[in-house]
Structures are given as structure tokens and as C-alpha cells.
Simulated scan of single mutants.
Amino acid sequence: MRRSTAQSGRQRSALDAAYDECRRLVRTTRPTEYALMGLMPPAARPACWALYAAFAHADDLLDSTDGTPEERAARLQEWRTALEADLTSGTSDDPIRLALTDAVWHWGLDLGDLLGALEAVQRDGDRQSVATWQEWRERSHAQNISWPEQFMRLLVRCGLPVPVRLRDVPGFTRFVEGLFLADMLRDLPEDLDGGHVWFPTEVLDRFQVAPADLIARRWTPAVRRLIAHLTGEARAWLEGARRVLRGSLPLGPAIVLDTTVDLFTAELDAIIGAGPAALSRPVRVPRHKQWRVLGPARARAAAIWRLTLPPTTATPGGRPVAGPDTDTAQPSPEWQPVPVADPPLPPRPHVDGVRPPEIAAAQLPDHVAIVMDGNGRWA
């Protein structure tokens, strides 16, 4: 009995460390996204870190300068194959995969969508520029739409009714495109360091800008007009999507939406204000401007979650959740399941990897029958 308890303690410690590793990765590489995750309910934040860390790690494997493109693609394939095996066994010896595996099984996340998004990243291994905006949008949708939908599923699991399949909500795909373009502008100096220009060829041709102009950091009038146009497009897509989406979301998620748009548009303002420096170094929003947006949003979000979420919603498994202003993790109460109008969670994988037989989708029932006899009784 003592040995079993000690083993359970070691497993819990490894899981806590895995989530904390994901938190540090997101916090150091994507501070804006990390700040936005702080607006989610405390119970859902570790899963948010795991989701984003997994996507960022997969992307970094392709963007790495270590090895040839073929070797980097092979490393990503190896990591994704290991992730699928981990999701079957329910555990992992890799901290990011361990946290993601736990989040998937604990919260009932859409495994097919997640693996599909990672597959889209893998297909993009050649990292070739696209010719048209339509091709650019297809790449954006394939790689990015699943992740915010998983965040919505987390809110459903916490007990908040929200539309899980956001891609069917008008304006959502344009919102994702706005985030993707803003992120591309934010990462432009790093991409140019690697000799890459990911903007569609059609927009470069429209402004008569050659990729070599950007890679050489030539701040010509044409380059200035191109950057102004792209930041304006990203802003218009984000603001337009906010107007459409806001009526589809409850107050809590709407606060997250508003703050996301406000922070990303502040970054777009900073890029415009930086001028030629936007081609050479990462541009950051001044901290006082960031806090002007985040401070009130955090206060409103905390109040909304207290008022709208069931009192049993706490940190899954008692894992530590860092507060928005601190790196110190605080213990939380044990998580208890919250009944929500969503499909039941699947059972955790068997420790030996045994899986039930697959049933063909065509053979699954798609209806419910109620049979009644002549006396009014029913079964």
C-alpha cells in the first residue's frame, strides 16, 4: 500500500511538472497568448498551456535551423507518432506530450481535430510561400481553427454553455485569419532571419515588393505601404469578427474575445509605430498599455466565472495554477465532474494499451426509438 501511494505521488509530481513546463514555454515565447489564457477559468488554464505548448513545439520543430528540412520534418513525424502512442497508453515520458495527453483524456477534447491540425502543420513542412490569399486562408484554417475550439470545449466542461464548433459560427474563420495575419506580422523579423516570407505572392506583387526586399530589410516606400496594408487588413478582420461573434457568446467568453482583439490590435499599432524596426526586431506593446487592457479584463473575468460557473469547478486533480501576476503556483481543491450538455467522456486508456474493437460508423445507430404498448406504458 505504501509503495502504491508513493508511485501515485511520483506520477502526480511528474504531471505537475509537465503542466508547469508548458506554462513556462507559453509564457516565455508568447506572452500575449499567455496573458489571454489567464482570463480563462482557473480550472482550464493548465489544459490551455498544454494545447498551445504542443502546437508551438510542433511548429518550432519545423522552424528550427538544426538539420535539413527533411530531418526537421522527420523529427516532427517522430514526435507526432509518439504523441499518438501516448494518447493510446494515457501517459508519456515527454513533458509536453504528458500534459497534452492528460488534458485530452481529462477534458474529453476532440482528438481527431487536434491530430488533424498537427497533420496540417506537418504537411507544411516544406514551408513554401503561397501564391494567393485563398491558399493562405486554407493553410490558416487547417492549422489554427481547432485550437480555439478546444478552448471552448474546456468552457463547456467547466459548465458553461458555449458553441463548441465555432467554425460554423459566422465571423469565426475571419477572426482566426486576423489572428494568423497579426501573428505573421509579429514574427516577421524571425522569419526574415530564416530567409522566409510567408505573405501571399499576390499581395507582394500588388505593392511591387520582392521577397528579397524584405529579407534585406529595405524600408522602401513600397514596403512601408505593404506593411500598412497588412496591418490594416488584420485589424479590419479582427474588429469585423468581433462585431459578428459577440452576440453568439456568453459574457465570460465575450470578455476573452474583446481582450484578444484589443491586445492584438495594440500589437498592430506598435508594429506601425516601429517603422523600419518592425523588420529587424520583435515589437512589444508598452507594458502600461497592455495593463490598461488586461487589468479591467481580469477583474471582469474573475467576477463572471464566480457568478456563472458551478462551485465544484476547480483545478483538475488539484494541480497548481499560477496566478496572472505571479509564477508561484498555489494548490487548488480537488476537481469534481460538472454535468454539462455534451457527449460523455470516454474512459481512460487501459494501462496495457488494450482498446475495444472499432465499430464502423455506418453501423452505429443515429436515432432513438421509444416503444409504447396499448396501455400507455413505455420502455
Rank of each mutant, 00 (worst) to 15 (best):
L115V: 12
P161Y: 01
E138I: 00
Q134M: 07
E138S: 08
E177Y: 06
S146Q: 13
V176I: 14
E138C: 04
G125K: 12
G171E: 02
D124S: 13
L160P: 02
R123A: 15
D124M: 08
R123H: 13
V164G: 00
A142S: 10
E119Q: 12
R167S: 15
L115E: 13
R127A: 10
R157A: 11
R157C: 11
F151N: 07
D126I: 08
S146D: 15
G178W: 07
A120E: 07
R174C: 05
G171K: 04
D168Y: 10
Q128H: 12
Q134T: 13
W147T: 14
S129A: 15
W147C: 02
S146F: 09
W133P: 06
W136N: 07
G178H: 02
W136Y: 15
L160T: 10
S140M: 10
G178K: 03
M184G: 14
Q122D: 15
D126E: 14
G178T: 09
E149R: 10
D124F: 06
N144H: 12
T173G: 03
R157H: 08
Q150T: 09
E119P: 03
S140Q: 04
E119V: 04
F151P: 00
G116W: 09
G159F: 01
L166P: 05
L114F: 08
E138F: 00
R165H: 15
A182K: 00
V169R: 03
E135G: 08
V176M: 05
R123E: 15
R157D: 09
Q128Y: 10
V130N: 04
Q128G: 10
R167F: 08
D183G: 15
L114K: 03
V164T: 09
A131L: 13
N144G: 10
R123T: 05
Q122H: 15
S140H: 04
P163F: 02
Q122C: 03
W147Q: 06
L155E: 09
D168H: 14
C158W: 02
N144L: 06
R139V: 12
M184Q: 14
A117E: 01
